[in-house]
């Protein structure tokens, strides 16, 4: 997994709440057996019309945001399905950070397995960022080590993150290799269960 610490980018303001995983990655793209190549399908039915042409009024199709690595949205981002294709498509598209007031549990968890940093800020803070980002491209600097988001206007937003998840992201660790270090505990548990 690719480690992550600092990300500097304009934000992509997605002015929606309860963005569900079916919108992030639609089911017709779940048939592939690879982990990569999902970026072109991200928000497919919001991005493209029935002829595959870009919809002009969708934020991801605005040239000014095309290089953005930070997505900002309202509450309960990623609700719905457990499909990890959702974070895969977000990552493959080029986002490394998602900022929202809250996330659905499975999606939130899946982000950490893929080197995506989900940041929870308050509703008021997210609304402020969205308002700034909607007027014109608005740059922020995310620092995971410091747990801060520093906006181009100098305002600093602090965020909380689980210390275990933070270390996973900073180091880009493979969780399965880590768990193998607890093999004797697992074996002992299985032995106890057998009795």
């Amino acid at each position: 997994m690719k480690p992550i610490n600092e990300v500097v980018s304009v934000i992509t303001p997605l002015d929606r709440k309860n963005v569900d995983t079916d919108q992030i990655i639609s089911k017709e793209f779940l048939k592939r057996i690879e982990r990569t190549g999902f970026g072109k399908y991200l928000f497919y039915h919001w991005r493209f019309d029935e002829n595959g042409q870009e919809k002009k009024d969708f934020i991801l199709n605005d040239e000014r945001y095309k290089e953005s690595e930070i997505l900002v949205a309202h509450e309960n981002f990623g609700c719905g399905s457990s499909r990890e294709h959702a974070p895969w498509s977000i990552m493959d598209y080029g986002f490394r950070v998602v900022i929202a007031p809250s996330f659905a549990d499975i999606f939130h968890n899946n982000c950490f397995k893929n080197g995506i940093l989900p940041i929870k800020l308050s509703v008021a803070e997210v609304e402020e960022l969205l308002a700034n980002g909607q007027q014109e491209p608005f740059k922020v600097e995310v620092n995971l080590e410091e747990q801060t988001v520093t906006a181009q206007d100098g305002k600093v937003y602090s965020f909380e993150i689980d210390p275990y998840q933070k270390q996973m992201l900073l180091n880009g660790w493979d969780e399965i290799s880590l768990t193998f270090q607890y093999e004797e505990h697992i074996a002992a548990f299985e032995e106890k269960q057998r009795v």
Binding site: S82, E84, P87, I106, N109, N110, N114, E175, T179
Partner: peptide, 14 residues
């Protein structure tokens, strides 16, 4: 429900 990375984790470590 779990994501695919966790499916892999359970397959290898239970």
């Amino acid at each position: 429900g779990i994501g695919t990375s966790e499916v892999e984790h359970v397959l290898s470590t239970q």
